[in-house]
């Protein structure tokens, strides 16, 4: 059962600092080849801790779109 919400990253604004990776309690975040952070949608529970530390304000918690 997936959470209702999850983290969405604005790749154009992300500075790839890795602050979000450090605080994620589910290890759902990683920095893709030094370019931007990416979320593993299966692991993310939408807690919002990453959004709270992101220095660039590039993470928003959004409603999960059911496929």
């Amino acid at each position: 059962m997936l959470s209702k919400r999850l983290a969405a990253i604005d790749k154009g604004r992300c500075v790839a600092c890795g602050a979000c990776v450090k605080v994620c309690p589910r290890s759902a975040l990683s920095v893709f080849r030094g370019c931007y952070a990416q979320v593993d949608g299966d692991l993310c529970v939408g807690c919002g801790r990453c959004a709270g530390v992101c220095p660039a304000g590039s993470i928003n918690i959004k409603e999960r779109v059911q496929a």
């Binding site: 500075v15 600092c17 602050a19 530390v53 220095p55 660039a56």
Partner: peptide, 10 residues
């Protein structure tokens, strides 16, 4: 601002 705000424009 946030603790690592510097990282945004480091």
């Amino acid at each position: 601002y946030r603790p690592r705000s510097w990282c945004a424009f480091c």
